[in-house]
């Protein structure tokens, strides 16, 4: 597992796609793109479209899977030579949180198991997420709970990753693991 995070427009998705392509060439496996975003407006649609075009110009073929919740259900679609890129973890968390009526205290464990299941069924799972825990968190209980879940989720994913990167202005900073 490889974990990549960064702020908005930091270049994290571009870096993740480059890394995934390199891995797929090394492993002679297939590239899979696990899209978690549900287009909610025109801007979002354009953004998704732009990312799709970028993936098309690379000489390797990507298979795109749209899975906004319960990612483990498609784990059997991959083989042990495949590279799976999931973009992004925060969207998946939001989808899982907002797909239920009540606050689910088991959500953290369930999400982590989902990622583990995918990793067990492929060669490398590359995760992209957002850096959002850097401001003075307000006293709003919902925001606090959300931040806590996201922080704990990121900690759990970094702990399970062989490599973890923080991308700043397009530059990937290796935070965990040996230089590849």
């Amino acid at each position: 597992m490889i974990f990549i995070t960064g702020g908005v427009r930091s270049g994290k998705s571009t870096f993740a796609e480059k890394l995934a392509t390199q891995k797929a060439i090394e492993l002679e496996g297939d590239l899979h793109y696990l899209a978690t975003g549900v287009p909610s407006d025109e801007e979002m649609e354009k953004r998704i479209e732009r990312h799709q075009q970028e993936r098309q110009v690379s000489h390797l073929n990507w298979t795109t899977w749209e899975q906004s919740t319960k990612i483990e259900t498609i784990a059997s679609s991959f083989s042990k030579k495949d590279v799976v890129l999931l973009d992004c973890v925060t969207t998946l968390l939001n989808n899982e949180l907002f797909s239920q009526k009540e606050w689910d205290t088991e959500i953290l464990g369930r999400l982590v198991r989902g990622f583990e299941t995918i990793q067990e069924n492929c060669a490398e799972l590359i995760l992209v997420s957002n850096e959002v825990l850097w401001e003075g968190i307000s006293g709003n209980e919902l925001v606090l709970q959300y931040s806590r879940i996201l922080g704990h989720l990121h900690q759990a994913l970094v702990a399970r990753s062989d490599h973890a990167y923080l991308v700043e202005s397009g530059i990937p900073i290796l935070m965990k693991g040996e230089r590849q």
Partner: peptide, 12 residues
């Protein structure tokens, strides 16, 4: 003195 910093919920 040892100063430890980082974002909220980062495991400090």
């Amino acid at each position: 003195m040892h100063f430890v910093t980082g974002g909220a919920y980062n495991g400090k």
